[in-house]
Each structure stands twice: as structure tokens, then as C-alpha cells.
């Protein structure tokens, strides 16, 4: 592959960081949803992935501070979601679930 200029790589890095911002934005957008809709497997996977890529975004060349900021936000978003799910999982689910399913906003739209 032909070598690309540094400014081009930085530009694609910005596009990559912008695309990555969709992950924390998606998590923050579903922060008012019912905690029973949270997928604990994917949320914890995203939390671990963000820790590694916070470090990675500075180790590569050219460094990508926009990506670093994105992963800080993502770590906060995923840990918040995981905390909400943990609170729901440890609470008495028997009374929460039927009412919550009836009142879930994404269910009502359909």
C-alpha cells in the first residue's frame, strides 16, 4: 500500500474517534431505559476494551487524544450502566419486572 501523509492519517484518526464516540453516546442515550434491558456481557466487555484502548490511543503514532477522551467517556458510560444493572440484579426483581416491561419506552413505540 502506498504511504499516506501524516495529516491524512490524523484525519482518519479523527473520523475513527468520531465513530467511536457513538458507543458512549449510545450508552448515555439508554441511561434512562429500564435496567432489565441492559446486556451485562456486552457492557462489561466494553468496559474492559475501553481500559486497553485508553492506553493504546497514546502509544500509537501519531497519538490520538480525541480517541483518549472518547474512551474516558465510554468507560464512565459503561461503568454507570453496569452499576445500574448490578443494582437491578441485586434488588427484588419479582415486583420490578412486570411494571418495568409495561412502562419501557422502547417497547411502547412499536
Amino acid at each position: 500500500m502506498a504511504a499516506k501523509s501524516a495529516s491524512y492519517i490524523k484525519g482518519v484518526g479523527m473520523v475513527g474517534a468520531f465513530a467511536n464516540w457513538m458507543i458512549p453516546v449510545a450508552a448515555f442515550a439508554s441511561i434512562t431505559d429500564d435496567p432489565s434491558r441492559i446486556n451485562p456481557g456486552m457492557t462489561s466487555a466494553l468496559a474492559v476494551y475501553s481500559l486497553f484502548f485508553m492506553r493504546w490511543s497514546l502509544a500509537i503514532s501519531p497519538p490520538n487524544p480525541a480517541l483518549f477522551a472518547c474512551h474516558v467517556a465510554n468507560e464512565a458510560a459503561q461503568l454507570t450502566q453496569l452499576f445500574r444493572y448490578g443494582k437491578y440484579a441485586m434488588s427484588d426483581k419479582t415486583e420490578a419486572t412486570p411494571a418495568a416491561v409495561a412502562a419501557a419506552p422502547s417497547e411502547q413505540k412499536k
Partner: peptide
């Protein structure tokens, strides 16, 4: 399935 999460990961996968 979390549609917001899945579609965001689909787009980042393509760019990255």
C-alpha cells in the same frame, strides 16, 4: 438486542 449499541459498534468496526 440493544439496537443503539449494536449499530454504533457496526459503524466503528467499519471505520477502524
Amino acid at each position: 438486542i440493544d439496537l443503539k449499541q449494536s449499530s454504533s459498534l457496526l459503524f466503528t468496526g467499519m471505520v477502524w
